[in-house]
């Protein structure tokens, strides 16, 4: 027989609320106020003309697509219209608040 679990005590720290998207300006807001803008780790070559084809293709098309924590950009389109970097675990959609910098 497997263990008989006792009562489960969820955190009372408001963890669920932390799963809303934290706009560094406007606060925790519903996902419907935002639009997704892709992988935040993708960096556009500073001087594209100096990038070779491989580097440019890497920027345009290749993605890490990690299964786990994912650094991504969201835009608060129905709010302050700022783009924000969000750390989100794509296996369960949990969001870690980001520094507004």
């Amino acid at each position: 027989m497997k263990k008989v679990p006792g009562p489960i005590h969820g955190s009372t720290e408001g963890n669920n609320v932390m799963l809303l998207i934290p706009c560094p300006h406007c606060g925790l807001r519903d996902q419907t106020e935002f639009s997704y803008c892709g992988d935040a780790t993708v960096t556009r070559p500073a001087t594209p003309e100096d990038a070779d084809d491989a580097a440019w293709i890497e920027y345009l098309y290749m993605r890490d697509n990690p299964k786990g924590p994912h650094d991504e950009l969201w835009q608060h389109v129905h709010g302050c219209r700022q783009l924000l970097r969000v750390g989100r675990d794509v296996t369960n959609h949990e969001i870690k608040a980001e520094d507004p910098s």
Binding site: D39, E58, Y61, M62, R63, D64, N65, K67, V90
Partner: peptide, 18 residues
């Protein structure tokens, strides 16, 4: 759905997001 993960095991990067 998981092509990126499997291809990465062989060191291949893909133009794919899940």
């Amino acid at each position: 759905g998981h092509s990126t993960q499997l291809a990465a095991m062989a060191g291949v990067r893909l133009p794919i997001e899940s």
